[in-house]
């Protein structure tokens, strides 16, 4: 477990003086102890600006979720709270901070820049580029529901990776449509935290695949989910892509809100069905005529999951193929 923040300092700044103010903060924190300035990447965190009265300096003081991520993957945080309603009059305020982690003998710290902006979308890159370090990879962590707050094209342009969580999607169909253009253009690598949650179930299916024969028809597949429709859709999209189901073919997906299992996949019917069911702790695989077996579900909190994605920085072909299949074939 990474060390949580042990101290933090911050001060109001302005867009023009961010680097100078950060340097001054570093001089202050480094006066009494040796502190490593750790930066492996830029982490641009996007949120919609809701409270116009809140100051940029305020949002740095309270964000434990971001600190938990950068404790695990030290990054320069650029936290953008943006009002994208298309104002012509641009307003941008900024504040800077330094968050310190680690034991006294191995203290390290990261830069934090908070920006509150209200401007046209096309001007947003000029703000973000000013604050990121260009020689490092830039990941965008979308702290909003992509199905209701679509990713800003302008921001996508400066990033290498988009991290989001489809579990928060209120409207899965719209979420898929939103992400479809990014999948098609392949301009940015996608990292869906929900896809990571699905990994043990995919692993289980790969393991029992030899017992499935040469082909699996979508008509023999049924997916039950407790309350995570996006997770069920991701599974269906992946199966659709990997099993090469024809256009218009789609498995049955049902919501079973009172089930103990988060997600259950059944292939076949009745006593001959192969079932794979997943809860928060394990996946149970039941194959007709064989001893059931379980796979451990790794216990990973959200901060660790985000940090793992930031570290990986690679194109996840499975996710991209699943999303492409969803965009192509999911019922409207």
């Amino acid at each position: 477990m990474a060390t949580l923040v042990v101290d933090r300092v911050w001060r109001p700044s302005s867009p023009e003086t961010v680097e100078g103010d950060l340097a001054a903060l570093w001089r202050d924190v480094g006066r009494d102890a040796r502190i490593a300035r750790a930066v492996m990447s830029n982490l641009v965190v996007y949120r919609r600006r809701r409270d116009s009265e809140r100051r940029a300096v305020d949002i740095l003081q309270t964000d434990a979720a971001i600190e938990a991520v950068v404790a695990r993957h030290p990054s320069r945080v650029v936290l953008v709270e943006h009002d994208a309603r298309g104002q012509q009059a641009t307003t941008v305020t900024a504040s800077v901070g330094v968050a310190l982690f680690g034991p006294q003998t191995a203290r390290y710290a990261v830069d934090q820049v908070a920006v509150r902006s209200a401007c046209v979308e096309t001007s947003l890159p000029s703000i973000v580029r000013r604050f990121i370090r260009g020689d490092l990879p830039t990941s965008i962590w979308w702290n909003e529901d992509l199905s209701t707050v679509p990713a800003l094209e302008a921001l996508i342009a400066v990033g290498r990776q988009l991290v989001y969580d489809s579990r928060h999607w209120q409207d899965v169909r719209r979420g898929v449509e939103t992400i479809a253009s990014l999948v098609a253009s392949q301009r940015i690598d996608l990292a869906d935290l929900n896809w990571r949650r699905l990994a043990p179930l995919r692993q289980a299916l790969v393991h029992v695949a030899p017992s499935l024969g040469d082909t699996v028809s979508a008509f023999h597949v049924r997916i039950h989910h407790r309350s995570d429709e996006a997770l069920a859709w991701l599974l269906a999209g992946w199966l659709c892509a990997r099993l090469e189901w024809a256009s218009g073919i789609w498995p049955a997906i049902d919501e079973t809100p009172h089930d103990d299992e988060i997600l259950t996949l059944a292939v076949g019917a009745g006593s001959t069905a192969l079932t794979i069911s997943m809860n928060d702790h394990r996946v149970v695989v039941s194959v007709p005529g064989a001893t059931p077996f379980t796979i451990r579900v790794p216990q990973v909190d959200e901060a660790e999951a985000v940090a793992v994605e930031l570290r990986s920085l690679s194109h996840d072909s499975g996710l991209h193929d699943a999303l492409a299949a969803l965009a192509r074939q999911a019922p409207g």
Partner: peptide, 9 residues
């Protein structure tokens, strides 16, 4: 089928 499912995993 096994190879297809394992692709990219």
């Amino acid at each position: 089928l096994s190879e297809r499912l394992a692709r990219g995993e």
